[in-house]
Design a protein around this nucleic acid. Structure first.
Length: 680
DNA sequence: CATACATGAATTTTT
DNA sequence: TTCATGTATG
């Protein structure tokens, strides 16, 4: 990025200036796709479109935030704030909050996270087998991503599939009863809305005059249909105004429903489609790009594309053989230290160690920790996954939607308030009988026939408290009021004491309490309206706690990772997509690991191709130095097995006589290794 | 009811 | 090897 030139290159320019028809931009790794998107937004504004008519769709909140930030420097703060820059899911939420009622969803529906979903699946599937429940959850999500309903799957002759379909049917009933939606519904239901309701369809088609989609190769079938519906304006003049930006070579999410078919279908559904390939790379040096091109050349391709750069050959790609994973970690550490010794300006942040599977991080963490090298592990437990944060989120969700039974169950038990499993069990059965939510059941007069007077009184007290809290949350508007309310609430719950009463050590309990206070702060900031510093919040009026709570499930993964701290990155290849570092160590490039081989599923061509794209993504993360390491012995489960170098190593075609480490580098490395040993 | 031990399973991840 | 879940025991 730092190296991007001031002007757009020819291909980028063509993409930016193609304003009125469907456009597919095949953006190779490091070819400046975000630049194209932001410049195109600026160009569209120039032609007279209002910012709110332009929608840029991303997959992650982080990407959305970045996009708005980049647009800001180009079009100014005011216009940037008015642009619709959002994830698919956030756009879905918006559509459903506005128009969900047209398809039978009340405006204050709740959004379930995957733990809630798992709980419901376990319940309707009547199983205690967590692995089974997870398989069902997985299958249901995949089907929903393909646009399939339970009824569509139910006719298959596979008994297991039919069983899963039945679980899915009951699951969907439950969601409807809770007035809750899962993440997949945030795409599927807006699509249903556009299909079933002509008024809503026209309204949304008219709202956006141009759609830009980032990481288009990651779209699934339902997302494709949603985009198609949004872009299908009845007026031929305004139809098909979209820009899809993606790279088929970086499609690595097939296993969760993304399909490259969406690239082919685009040409079929929009015959006027203009395809533009961005091939000039502004990230890496020649040796790295050549290796990348050589590897990806092994895959079949839809459109031809070959990366090149102006940066010269640069350093050779290095290949390193290691005895074991701990040896590999030692060598990586030595590499980092040697590079820093040779180039004093190099920071820790300039290094990344990339690997296929999370467990590979362990060896590296160990070595880096003992060497006192600061590091961060990608995909580590998010702040929002922590139990204490989820407790509080459950409360907030309950305030938004009292019929959200999973939230009710979690909130009513934290902290314990003398309402035990027996009482809740009976309440649940009562609610099931009367087909109402737990919260509704709680106030039903007939409940007294099922439960003792004491239990009923306890439930009533709880219900009244929740109602009162909802009213207070509605009125607490702005950062200060929000903070005051949330702190008062925590005091009423005696939540800090609850944390210390748990079986955590006092130290851990204190850490949890700190998290809680951070969370309060986080919500309060979001209530604060325009004053928000981080630039992510739009210049909006102050919000009430209740309003912020409504959007919480979607914002939640926006866990701000302090990207600017000077640390070495340890990351999976998946989590590394879209990022870049001057020096990259690609670890464990062995058969079985990359390409990954599972005992459960056989290796199909399509699987192998996706693994190859993963390797390609890994290689193209590197700007200047790339080291690829293999293991001679590799752990598999309990025992150690001989390691075979990945076929992808050979495919990089490094052996043009230059792949060997040069002697000076070798000496440097050995010295650093010694130093590292001495330090440990 | 809570704690301790045993047993089994273990890609990739966002919303 | 580690983590999580289930069972058995006090």
């Amino acid at each position: 990025m730092s190296t991007a030139p001031a002007t757009l290159n020819d291909a980028q320019m063509r993409a930016v200036n193609h304003l009125h028809g469907p456009c597919l931009v095949l953006a190779g790794a490091g070819s400046g796709k975000t630049r194209v998107i932001t410049h195109k937004i600026a160009r569209l504004l120039q032609t007279g479109l209002a910012p709110r008519q332009i929608a840029a769709i991303t997959f992650t909140n982080k990407a959305a935030q970045e996009m708005r930030e980049r647009a800001r420097t180009l079009v100014g703060a005011k216009a940037a704030n008015e642009l619709v820059v959002s994830t698919f899911h956030a756009l879905g939420v918006r559509m459903l909050r506005e128009d969900g009622e047209r398809i039978g969803l009340k405006p204050r529906f709740s959004i379930l996270d995957s733990d809630d979903v798992l709980g419901i699946v376990r319940e309707v599937g009547a199983t205690t087998d967590a692995a089974q429940a997870r398989r069902w959850q997985w299958a249901i999500s995949l089907w929903k991503n393909q646009g399939l309903a339970a009824a569509d799957v139910a006719q298959q002759d596979n008994a297991l599939t039919r069983q899963a379909a039945q679980v899915m049917a009951r699951y969907e009933q439950k969601l409807a009863a809770y007035q809750a939606v899962d993440f997949d519904d945030l795409i599927g239901l807006p699509l249903k809305l556009l299909r079933d309701d002509a008024d809503a369809r026209l309204k949304w088609q008219q709202r956006f005059a141009h759609l830009l989609v980032d990481e288009y190769q990651d779209t699934n079938a339902v997302q494709y249909e949603l985009l198609k519906a949004l872009a299908s304006h009845p007026d031929a003049e305004r139809r098909g105004r979209f820009t899809a930006v993606g790279d088929d070579d970086q499609s690595i999410y097939g296993w969760r429903g993304a399909t490259i078919d969406n690239l082919k279908r685009l040409g079929q559904d929009w015959p006027a489609l203009t395809v533009i390939a961005l091939e000039q790379n502004y990230r890496s040096t020649g040796h790295i790009l050549r290796a990348a091109n050589a590897v990806i050349g092994g895959n079949p391709k839809l459109y031809d594309k070959k990366l090149w750069s102006d940066f010269g050959d640069g350093e050779q790609v290095r290949r390193v053989e290691c005895d074991s994973d701990s040896h590999e970690a030692e060598r990586a550490l030595a590499f980092i230290q040697a590079t820093r010794a040779a180039q004093p300006a190099t920071g820790w942040r300039d290094f990344a160690v990339l690997y296929r599977a999370n467990h590979q991080a362990r060896a590296f963490e160990e070595k880096l920790r003992t060497a006192q090298v600061p590091y961060r592990v990608s995909g580590g437990q998010s702040w929002f996954d922590r139990a204490e944060i989820k407790d509080l989120c459950a409360w907030l969700r309950l305030l938004v939607n009292p019929d959200d039974d999973p939230a009710f169950l979690r909130a009513v038990r934290t902290p314990k308030r003398g309402i035990g499993d027996t009482t809740l069990d009976k309440l649940g059965r009562f609610a099931g009988q009367w087909k109402c939510s737990l919260f509704e059941a709680l106030f039903a007069p007939a409940l007294a026939t099922q439960l003792g007077a004491k239990a009923v009184a306890g439930l009533h007290e709880y219900g009244r408290y929740v109602n009162g809290l909802e009213e207070r949350a509605r009125q607490a508007r702005g950062a200060d009021a929000a903070r005051a309310l949330l702190l008062a609430w925590l005091t009423e719950l005696d939540y800090e004491k609850h944390l210390h009463d748990g079986d955590d050590s006092p130290k851990l309990a204190a850490a949890r309490w700190t998290n809680v206070l951070d969370f309060v702060d986080w919500i309060a900031r979001r209530c604060g309206g325009a004053a928000a510093r981080d630039g992510s919040a739009e210049a909006a009026p102050e919000q009430s706690v209740l309003e912020v709570a409504q959007t919480i499930a979607v914002i939640i993964s926006l866990a701000e990772r302090d990207a600017d701290s000077d640390v070495v990155t340890l990351s999976t290849l998946h989590a590394a997509k879209g990022l870049e570092w001057p020096h990259v160590w690609l670890a464990g490039v062995n058969e079985g690991l990359l390409p990954f081989k599972s005992d459960a599923e056989e290796m199909t061509d399509e699987r192998l191709h996706e693994e190859r794209r993963l390797m390609y993504v890994g290689i193209t993360r590197a700007q200047r130095t790339l080291v690829v390491s293999t293991l001679r012995r590799r752990k598999r489960g309990r025992d150690t097995v001989p390691g075979v170098p990945s076929r992808f190593i050979a495919e990089m075609k490094l052996d043009d006589g230059t792949a060997k480490e040069n002697p000076r580098e070798r000496l440097k490395r050995l010295r650093a290794e010694l130093a590292a040993k001495a330090a440990a």
